[in-house]
Amino acid sequence: MKRRTLVGGIAAAAATAAASGTAAPRRIGMSDVERLRERFVEIIASDHRHGGQLGIEKRAAVLADDALTLQKASSATQRVRNSLYASAAAFTSSAMWAAIDGRRYDAAKSYMREAQALAEMSGDQTIKFRIWSHAGTMYRHMGRPADALAANDVARNLHLTRRDPLFASLGLARQGAIQGTAQDRTGVRRAFEQAQETMLRADPTDNRPVWMIAFYDQAELDSLALSAHLALGDYPTAEYHAHRCLSALRPHMVRSRAVATTRLAHAQLGQGDADTATATAMAVPAEAAGRHPRVTRMLEKFGSALATTAPRSSAVQMWSEHTAAWRANS
């Protein structure tokens, strides 16, 4: 995969020092790692606001190359080298997630393989968890629940989940979402009961990576439960979790709000309430409806289901006019 490198001044400075005939190679330290981590925070923020965009994927991939360029160009302690590999793995996992969210699965699988190798070299269990957990989500979206469970189990079996209940909770919640796809009602109920109990045991003051702090909370647990019960066709329970999720979502979770709102519309339509469901679907911001591949596809499915459920209703005409408007502006 060809990527442009040297976006920031960090790698450029290191390469310049290495090329000089008189200057000694600059020693890379944790201050350089911290600069990369600041860029990672920016990637996380972009993902939560926009999600699935090719631009986010490419920026994350370039920054992963920056981290690896530092490895090649300079001297550093083993701690710094491990941190650079962890940063490269983190950026690559963000590129992977953007590709998953944008339904670019071939690219996502390529990033996954690269991220897994980098994570092994880093020795960082938190990033290993993120990558394998993302892999489980990828296979779930692809309709491959057996592969999804296998990948998610790798994440759940890391020693990290025995030390930190919050990671254990996320692993269980994602297991529940996968079991929804597999139509395992008993598994869904058990997984979310355990995920909720385990979350309550987590110490909120523990030091955790920014990507975990930024998204996993009660709202995300309810979002995964919403997905599972929607897949099972349990629409009242799905609606219950949708309202819980939407009421608890933090302001920066723009993409997650669009996804949950769209799923709520499906849950309401599944209960035969076409008018309320249409009003809910119309509340999804036009930017997400027209530019986020996952949201766009779910809304297209909503339109098809609406036409089948209430073919002669005024809701169908309202939805048709609404979608024509946001498609024209996307």
Results as ranks from 00 to 15, higher is better:
1 M>C: 08
2 K>L: 14
11 A>C: 05
14 A>K: 01
14 A>G: 00
14 A>M: 05
15 A>F: 09
16 T>C: 10
17 A>C: 14
18 A>K: 12
23 A>V: 14
27 R>A: 12
27 R>K: 13
28 I>N: 00
33 V>Y: 06
43 I>C: 02
46 S>M: 12
46 S>E: 13
46 S>G: 10
48 H>P: 00
49 R>I: 07
51 G>M: 08
54 L>A: 13
56 I>M: 02
58 K>Q: 15
71 Q>D: 08
72 K>R: 13
74 S>D: 00
77 T>K: 07
81 R>G: 05
82 N>C: 10
82 N>T: 09
82 N>G: 15
84 L>P: 01
85 Y>D: 04
85 Y>E: 03
85 Y>W: 10
88 A>D: 00
88 A>M: 00
88 A>L: 01
90 A>F: 05
90 A>G: 10
91 F>R: 00
91 F>N: 01
92 T>S: 11
93 S>D: 11
93 S>L: 02
93 S>A: 15
96 M>C: 04
97 W>L: 14
99 A>N: 04
105 Y>N: 03
109 K>P: 00
109 K>N: 09
110 S>Y: 07
111 Y>G: 00
111 Y>S: 01
112 M>E: 13
121 M>P: 00
122 S>M: 07
124 D>V: 05
124 D>P: 03
126 T>S: 14
126 T>F: 13
128 K>Y: 09
130 R>H: 11
133 S>G: 13
134 H>Q: 12
134 H>C: 07
135 A>K: 05
136 G>I: 13
137 T>K: 12
147 D>A: 12
148 A>P: 07
151 A>M: 12
152 N>A: 13
153 D>P: 01
154 V>G: 06
156 R>A: 15
170 L>K: 07
171 G>K: 04
172 L>E: 05
173 A>C: 04
178 I>M: 06
180 G>T: 09
186 T>C: 04
187 G>F: 09
188 V>Y: 06
191 A>C: 09
191 A>M: 08
193 E>V: 04
194 Q>T: 09
196 Q>M: 07
197 E>M: 09
197 E>H: 11
198 T>G: 03
199 M>I: 06
206 D>S: 14
209 P>G: 10
212 M>L: 15
212 M>V: 12
216 Y>N: 07
217 D>E: 13
219 A>I: 09
220 E>R: 13
220 E>F: 12
223 S>A: 13
224 L>S: 02
228 A>R: 02
231 A>P: 07
235 Y>K: 03
241 H>L: 14
245 C>K: 03
245 C>R: 02
246 L>S: 07
248 A>V: 08
249 L>N: 05
252 H>D: 15
253 M>P: 00
254 V>A: 12
255 R>L: 06
260 A>F: 11
262 T>W: 03
267 A>D: 07
269 L>I: 03
270 G>H: 08
275 D>C: 05
278 T>D: 02
278 T>G: 02
284 V>D: 01
285 P>N: 06
288 A>S: 15
289 A>S: 15
290 G>T: 02
292 H>S: 08
297 R>L: 14
305 A>C: 05
306 L>V: 04
307 A>N: 10
307 A>E: 15
309 T>F: 02
311 P>M: 07
312 R>W: 10
313 S>H: 06
315 A>E: 04
316 V>F: 10
316 V>C: 08
318 M>I: 01
319 W>E: 00
321 E>D: 15
322 H>S: 01
323 T>E: 11
324 A>K: 13
326 W>Y: 15
327 R>C: 03
329 N>S: 14
